[in-house]
């Protein structure tokens, strides 16, 4: 979790220096969700994400160096510079792809899980998407399909209270209940405190086991806070009511873990050393990316079709 935080904080600097030429949605604040969920999965389980997937990818065991090469549009990036921040992919760690069209990941992941059922595999598929995406029509259709075909799909809703800057209460009818909606489709539902690693990972493990055993879909809704703006690193405050700066600081999952570690006997200096080492490694990867070659212009024409 700290690695995700340190890595993205350095990406913020790259962004501010205008070296990062890709639309970026920072994950800062939501780390407990990605790490809590991915820790509950097996390496051979598949994961798909959305526009805000740096954290999902890294938590699944992704390679930060290749990720940052992609963010900087380099030839050795995850998608050879053609995708950018919103298109994470790395099949070597079973991260099957992220796509920024809201809700699109849910039918796609249903299909990936359908293959696992079709070929009688013991693996499951996890899809990360947000509270905004969960309002798309295709997502409701996909709940029905996933339940109808009984596919091993774990749905993770990261409810950070905002669709861009629009509040839940302005988007949902009074009495709206995601639990009631998905339960109506026969999908097992749990809610977790998305700012608490232990709560997320315990419930994610329960549901991952359930999906693997029962071969049918389940959903974990994680209530969490997005520390930055929708797609810039600004710490914008004007539209926030619940997740004020004070509340975000108080509920920060990483700060809470630090308190626990210190209480358990870990020394402050050990934590500082750990953070310094992570930062060193992140900076080395960023330097590597900055020195990596851009793709040649001929690459415009490659890869439209698979050979």
């Amino acid at each position: 979790m700290l690695y995700l935080r340190v890595a993205e904080q350095e990406l913020v600097q790259l962004y501010l220096d205008k070296k990062l030429f890709s639309m970026v949605h920072f994950y800062v604040g939501q780390e407990a969700v990605a790490v809590g969920v991915c820790d509950a999965l097996k390496p051979e389980d598949k994961v798909m994400g959305n526009h805000r997937s740096h954290g999902h990818y890294l938590a699944k065991g992704g390679n930060f160096r290749r990720m940052v090469c992609e963010l900087l549009g380099r030839a050795n990036g995850l998608a050879r510079g053609k995708g950018g921040s919103m298109h994470m992919i790395d099949k070597s760690v079973n991260f099957i792809g992220s796509t920024p069209l809201l809700g699109s990941v849910v039918p796609l992941a249903t299909g990936v899980a359908f293959e696992q059922k079709y070929n009688k595999r013991d693996t499951i598929t996890t899809a990360f998407f947000g509270d905004g995406a969960s309002e798309e029509g295709v997502v409701y259709e996909s709940y029905n399909l996933a339940a109808l075909y009984q596919v091993p799909l774990l749905l993770i809703v990261e409810n950070n209270l905002f669709a861009i800057n629009s509040k839940l209460k302005d988007r949902r009818a009074p009495g709206h209940s995601l639990e009631k909606i998905v339960s109506g489709f026969g999908i097992e539902y749990r809610k977790a405190d998305g700012n608490d690693y232990k709560d997320v990972t315990t419930k994610a493990k329960e549901l991952a086991d359930f999906v693997r055993r029962e071969k049918r879909p389940a959903m974990l809704e994680c209530i969490t806070y997005r520390h930055m703006a929708h797609s810039t690193p600004l710490m914008d405050e004007k539209y926030r009511e619940v997740d004020t700066l004070e509340e975000r600081t108080k509920q920060d999952s990483i700060a809470k873990l630090k308190v626990e570690l210190l209480a358990g006997g870990t020394k402050e200096s050990e934590l500082a050393l750990m953070e310094a080492e992570l930062k060193k490694s992140v900076l080395a990867d960023i330097q590597f990316a900055l020195e990596s070659p851009f793709p040649p212009k001929e690459d415009i024409y490659t890869d439209m079709y698979a050979e």
Partner: peptide
């Protein structure tokens, strides 16, 4: 397979199944 009248989801599901090799 018969499907529900959910063109968006069933087509997306087919695309997902295809990227998994079906």
């Amino acid at each position: 397979l018969d499907t529900p009248t959910s063109e968006a989801a069933l087509t997306g599901m087919a695309v997902g199944a295809a990227i998994s090799g079906l």
